Simulated scan of single mutants.
Amino acid sequence: MEVNMNRSHYIRRLSLKREDVPSFERYPFHLPSIKKLTELEFHPNVTFIIGENGMGKSTLLEAIALSIGFNAEGGTLNFNFSTFDSHSELERFVRIAKGTVRPKDGFFLRAESFYNVASTIQKLDEEPGYGAPVIDSYGGVSLHEQSHGEAFFSTFNHRFRGDGIYILDEPEAALSPLRQLSMLTRIQELVTNRSQFIIATHSPIIMAYPSAKIIELSEDGLQEKKLEETNHFQIMKQFFDDKDRLLHHLFQE
């Protein structure tokens, strides 16, 4: 299934300015995925960045988001706040090639700092004379009064408007398997409405979105993979095909 393949990407590719890197022996440049990075081409619809913990998925995604103007802790392009300055310097050493069309909407969603985004929305709505409540764009119910998963899903359903670039860091962290399937439906709706996604995830359910590009980060660098070739899919398949055998081997070690 291909959607809108003839339209321009909002983001075409990322290049590492290797000649400017001060040292490949220090963080984050010592990470294998960064150390071996030259260029990364994005799919016009959906690109997944996957890999084991510590391979640099969130670091790379953060650099992409910051390079196009998002706040390090997430939110829309209009958000400008910081509760803790912890982002890496990678964004100063990457070059983003954009398409000819500019997005009308955008959101950077990080599981680890979504609470801070929700707090910022609440603070803005408490300020007198700010205008229409910001929370109205998120479904009208305080994100703090919902479960983590409900708040995530309210954002997907209400704040993501289409014609946009959406960068998501491990959105499955707060979503049940059923909600992850519902998320695929929402991604499809937004892609059909001229949107582009770049998603870091561990979820085989989410990365099953048809025709997406899957980039796996490992000790060998970056490699494009099919879903069935990924460690995430293979481990889950092995578990459900014969969980008793797998658990037996795990407990014998």
Rank of each mutant, 00 (worst) to 15 (best):
F197Q: 06
L217P: 04
I165P: 04
A151Q: 03
T201D: 03
F152P: 01
D241T: 04
F153Q: 08
T185P: 01
I205R: 08
A208F: 02
M236V: 15
Q146T: 08
S218M: 05
Q188L: 04
Y166C: 13
Q234P: 00
K226R: 14
E216I: 02
Q238I: 06
E224M: 07
H202C: 07
R159I: 14
F160V: 04
A151C: 09
A200F: 03
A212G: 11
L184S: 11
G162P: 15
T192M: 13
V141I: 15
I214G: 02
S154C: 08
H202L: 10
K225I: 00
Q188C: 02
K226N: 09
M207P: 00
Q223H: 12
L175H: 00
D242T: 03
A208I: 01
I199N: 04
L184D: 11
Q234N: 09
F156W: 12
L168K: 01
A212Y: 12
D220A: 09
Q238D: 15
S142G: 07
D241Y: 01
G221Q: 06
S195R: 07
G140H: 13
Y138L: 11
D242M: 03
G139P: 02
Q223S: 14
I214M: 10
V191N: 13
I187T: 08
I235D: 06
D163C: 09
E189Y: 05
S154E: 12
H144S: 12
S218C: 08
F153D: 05
P177R: 05
G149T: 06
N193S: 15
Q188P: 02
E145L: 10
T201K: 06
L181F: 03
Q146F: 08
D241V: 04
F239M: 14
T201I: 09
S195Y: 06
M183G: 00
A208S: 15
Y138E: 08
A151P: 00
K213N: 07
I214C: 05
R186I: 13
